[in-house]
Amino acid sequence: MIEKDILTLGIESSCDETSAAVLRGGRQLLSNIISTQIPVHQKFGGVVPEIASRKHIVNVMPVIDEALSRANVGLGDINQIAVTYGPGLVGALLVGVSVAKSLSYALDIPLIGVNHLEGHIFANFLSYPDLEPPFVALVVSGGHTALVHVKGYGHFEMMGQTRDDAAGEAFDKVARVMGLPYPGGPQIDKLAKDGNPDAIDFPRALSKSRGNYEFSFSGLKSAVLNYLNSMEMKHQTIVKADVAASFQKAVTEVLVDKAIDALSETGLDKLVLAGGVAANSSLEGRLKHAATEHGVKFYFPGLALCTDNAAMIACRGYYQSLTGKYSALYLNAEPGLSLESRMD
């Protein structure tokens, strides 16, 4: 089998999206099917883990079946299976892992357990066929914020990550307090478009210290909540659009500053944005602007590939297989898996 013809079936079920994808080689995406549960969780104001698991077990086979049929391949043509084994909701992860393991056993093909966060970075390889390491990746997802020096396909160096709340969590909590429907991130993004980003001066935690790539958003989150409370106590009108715009500016400024710092320290000229929060248009816009100002090339996987999907898992799995990083059938879900430095 020539490497570029290897067919990888990717499976993803870490949160509220059930997804399956077929990838030829490392870059040629044949299908990417996503079943989203957002409408199901909306009334609860967030993802309910038990409900998510219940939807995954129903959706998982139709999604796989559809991914194969859209790719125009049979299950017997698949050479290997890549599945997200963490981080995420344990019950949700277990659905994908159980199905992937039994498919791997039944078809006698290798299994590759993939770190979901590494998957987010690899989404960029699908959008940019010519993109190659090394580069700096800014990972901004619901539960994680991190700057990673990607030195090779299996060689990452963690530059810094969040100490407390991830950027995505801050977005969700602020949105909830402002009474915006779930999912909160896109709602704040939308609202912020009509607001004044300089209306309120929220704090930028840890932003001043050069060479420190840790993030902290819990202070900012508290500042927004305090602001909303105090305005309410004083019976003053809250201009939600201004709050959203100012909060969003505070978050994106920190992210942009640190990313630019990381680029100058590593001397690299490629910045890659990854993760669900990457869909935030203001963050994408500011990063792109800052990157261009600093003569840096900016990469962003596009909306469909920056939310949770199996294509990115298949892509990560493919490159993992090249260095022989397969998993045993004993693979278990690891809800607390983190993004770490590694050298395969």
Binding site: I34, S35, T36, P39, Q42, N309
Partner: peptide
């Protein structure tokens, strides 16, 4: 039902019987 649904139905008896929204399958390509 899940704990969250039981609580929801208790607080919103008027919507308890209504049909639930379902997942939407998308071809991301």
């Amino acid at each position: 039902k899940s704990e969250a649904e039981v609580l929801w139905d208790r607080r919103h008896p008027e919507t308890a019987a209504k049909s639930e929204p379902s997942s939407i399958m998308i071809d991301a390509i």
